[in-house]
Simulated assay, not measured.
Amino acid sequence: MTLQPTDKEIIRSVREGDVQAFGLLVDKYQHMVYTLAVRVVKNREIAEEVAQDAFVKAFEALEGFKGESKFSTWLYRIAYYRALDVSDREKRKWRVTHEVAVEDNPAASANTTWTALMDEERGEFIKTVLDSLTEEDRSVLSLHYLQELSLKEVGEIMGLQPNTVKIRLYRARQRMLTFIQEHQCDKWLQNYGS
């Protein structure tokens, strides 16, 4: 059994000219970076582009990585801010195209209602709840609970103090609970919640 090189060893190899070694970092973190991107942009194809962009930016900026935090934290921070940039761009694009569509077709502006979620699978329900939250709420919850990062690591990625992360996690959980209660998902709470 061969031991996998550490992130520091891989980074050193890349800095010494072994550009191919960066692929080991991509292999190691691609799923987590992609998952973070999906949580922010809510579109799988766009998330793939965000993840690729994040790795390109990380590669280009690798000389500037000082190692003061873990490589994964540094990488997630790059991916998080790239995802926010793309999400903002997509929202602007959506508003422009939908404002035109609404003017052309008044029926297109009608609000759709949520269908009953009680019979949905747990995973689909959680996705729905997460999608109802803001980008910031989704990100902080995903980083802490799905990526299993510490409060400190989440704070480094999002540019926040650990206590602020703790408060935002609490508030995001409260907003999730409010959403569940407002959409009368008591059955789900009984089966999967507390």
Rank of each mutant, 00 (worst) to 15 (best):
L146M: 06
Y192C: 07
R168K: 15
A101C: 11
T113H: 11
G155N: 05
G67T: 12
A107G: 14
R89H: 08
A108P: 03
F179W: 14
L169P: 05
D119N: 14
P106Q: 15
L146R: 09
Y81T: 03
E99T: 12
D131Y: 05
N43M: 04
T115F: 03
D7K: 09
E135L: 03
F71Y: 02
R138M: 01
Q20C: 03
A107N: 15
R77P: 02
V40Q: 08
L189P: 13
S87G: 13
Q190A: 14
L36N: 09
Y192A: 08
L143D: 06
S87Y: 15
Y29L: 07
P106R: 14
A79Y: 02
S194Q: 13
A83E: 00
E49A: 03
A61V: 08
G17N: 02
V33Q: 07
A54F: 02
Q161K: 14
R82V: 06
E90M: 13
E153F: 06
Q190N: 12
K166A: 13
V50K: 03
K70G: 00
R168D: 09
R95C: 01
L149E: 12
A37P: 08
D53P: 04
A54H: 02
T112W: 09
E99W: 07
V19T: 01
T178F: 02
L177I: 08
L130V: 04
L133T: 02
N111D: 13
E182R: 10
E182S: 09
G23S: 03
S194P: 13
R168Q: 14
V50P: 00
D27G: 02
E45L: 13
G64S: 15
Y80K: 05
L141Y: 00
K91Q: 10
W188D: 01
R95G: 00
V154F: 07
T97M: 14
E48H: 02
S150V: 01
C185A: 15
L3P: 11
V165K: 07
T6R: 12
T112M: 14
N163V: 05
R173W: 07
E135S: 06
L62W: 03
I11E: 10
L62N: 01
N163R: 12
H144C: 04
Q161G: 04
K93G: 05
I78P: 01
R138Y: 02
A54P: 02
V56L: 08
V38K: 08
T128P: 05
R92V: 11
E63S: 08
